[in-house]
Measured scan of single mutants.
Amino acid sequence: VAKRKCPDHGLDLSTYCQEDRQLICVLCPVIGAHQGHQLSTLDEA
């Protein structure tokens, strides 16, 4: 199974943004649109 990539940063989608209910990469909460959002690992989601 191919991993999905972040459209903004090109990295694997490895984190779940609880606020926006979507998968994001590790850079999205650091330099992207998900700064300050509640996050979960994929195992927790």
Rank of each mutant, 00 (worst) to 15 (best):
V30R: 13
H9E: 01
E44H: 15
R21M: 11
L13F: 05
G36Q: 07
Y16S: 05
T15H: 10
V26D: 14
Y16H: 09
D8I: 14
H9T: 00
Y16L: 09
H9D: 00
S14P: 01
L13Y: 05
D43E: 13
H9C: 07
S40D: 10
S40F: 06
L39T: 13
S40L: 07
C17R: 03
Y16M: 11
A33R: 11
D20E: 10
A45I: 15
R21T: 10
L23T: 12
V1L: 04
E19P: 04
P7T: 15
G32S: 03
Q18T: 08
Q38P: 11
L23H: 08
G36K: 06
L27F: 06
V26K: 15
E44R: 10
H37R: 02
K5M: 12
D12Y: 06
R4K: 13
E44N: 11
T15S: 11
D20K: 03
Q22Y: 13
E44T: 13
C17W: 00
T15W: 04
A45W: 10
G32Y: 01
V1P: 06
C17Y: 01
T15Y: 12
Q22A: 11
G36A: 06
A2E: 15
G36L: 04
K3G: 09
H37L: 01
Q22R: 12
Q18C: 10
D43S: 11
Q22T: 15
Y16I: 15
D20Y: 02
L23C: 06
C25L: 00
G32V: 02
Q22V: 10
Q38L: 08
T41W: 06
P29T: 11
L11G: 05
D43N: 11
I24R: 05
E19M: 06
H9F: 00
C6P: 00
V30H: 09
V1S: 11
L42D: 14
Q18V: 07
G36Y: 03
L27K: 15
G32A: 03
L39E: 11
G32P: 04
T15F: 03
P29I: 05
C6D: 01
P7G: 05
T15E: 09
K5D: 03
T41D: 13
L11F: 07
I31L: 11
S40R: 10
Q35L: 07
L11Y: 11
L39W: 10
L42R: 13
I31T: 15
T41C: 11
P7A: 11
L23I: 05
H34C: 06
S14R: 07
L39K: 08
K3S: 09
G10S: 08
K3Y: 06
T15C: 05
Q18F: 06
S14Y: 13
V30C: 08
V30N: 09
I24A: 06
E44Y: 04
A45V: 11
H34Q: 02
R21H: 14
E44Q: 10
Q38W: 04
G36T: 04
S40C: 11
L23F: 05
Q22W: 02
A33I: 10
A33S: 13
P7Q: 14
H34Y: 02
V1T: 08
L11V: 05
S14M: 09
S14I: 13
L27I: 06
V30W: 05
G36S: 06
